[in-house]
């Protein structure tokens, strides 16, 4: 079966629509979503409505949780004072923009999803807020996969897609597959990213999809979000947050 795994849409409906079209084109049979449907972007309700309308299995991201229960960040959420102030501004805007139905939907999302030997989480099996960076200590990273009781752990949260294979450690081979970000890329280009996965062959394809990011930038400005969010989106720089410390263990 061919799966499509998407993550970190962040209220960017133009990017989500483009990725869904690309998934259609590649005939994926099932889509999984790793959360962060809202936050920073201008269309949180539209994104949630699309996910609900297509009945895409979705786990809860850090932003989805924060919008429901309030901010309670570990230091990894905000690597600088400036990022923190921008994040809180985006949180306040999103919190007033989302509908009761959207809030209710985000509140009931599960922390993880399973399909046979595959596990789907937002950050890590420990927390939606923990970053599994590609440089993370190998034993700790493998422990996260084992904790999930899976052979393949799909995650997002870092906004940069990658595949990490633990070749020498165990048979069968364990892997972490990061789906990148649909709506808030951080790989230096504005294009959306997601992952295609063949369950029979274990083949992974990292997809990068062009879309009309200028439309999202215009919506950011029109809706009164900080102009710097549009500038960063257009450059694939992520809006405010950075996760750069692979040794950090989230303690939220």
């Amino acid at each position: 079966m061919k799966l499509a795994v998407i993550s970190c849409i962040h209220g960017n409906s133009a990017a989500l629509d483009a990725v869904l079209s690309d998934i259609d084109h590649h005939h994926a049979e099932q889509i999984y979503c790793l959360g962060d449907l809202v936050g920073y972007g201008p269309d949180p309700n539209a994104v949630v409505e699309t996910i609900r309308a297509l009945a895409i299995p979705t786990c809860q991201g850090c932003w989805d949780e924060d919008i429901v229960v309030g901010l309670d960040a570990c230091e990894c959420s905000y690597p600088s004072l400036l990022a923190e102030r921008r994040g809180k501004l985006a949180h306040a805007w999103t919190s007033q923009a989302i509908s009761p139905e959207t809030r209710e939907f985000l509140a009931q999302l599960p922390l993880s999803l399973r399909l046979d030997n595959l596990c789907f989480v937002h950050g890590s099996p420990n927390s939606q807020h923990e970053y599994l960076l590609p440089e993370m200590d190998e034993s700790i990273a493998l422990e996260r996969v084992m904790t999930a009781g899976a052979e393949v752990l799909f995650c997002g949260h870092t906004h940069i897609p990658y595949v990490r294979t633990f070749e020498d450690s165990h048979v069968p081979v364990h892997r972490i597959i990061n789906a990148g970000s649909v709506g808030e890329p951080r790989h230096g280009r504005p294009n959306a990213t997601y992952v295609l996965y063949e369950t029979e062959t274990q083949q992974v394809t990292l997809r990068e999809v062009e879309y009309d990011y200028q439309a999202t930038c215009a919506a950011i400005l029109a809706k009164g979000l900080p102009p710097i969010f549009a500038w960063r989106l257009a450059r694939g720089l992520e809006f405010a947050e950075r996760a750069d410390d692979p040794t950090h263990i989230c303690d939220r």
Binding site: S80, L81, L82, A83, I228, W231, R235
Partner: peptide, 17 residues
């Protein structure tokens, strides 16, 4: 300033944000 914030600002300033 905390260095991370200052670096973020300086990057944006010099990259024409």
């Amino acid at each position: 300033f905390d260095p991370a914030s200052l670096n973020l600002f300086w990057f944006e300033l010099t990259e024409a944000a």
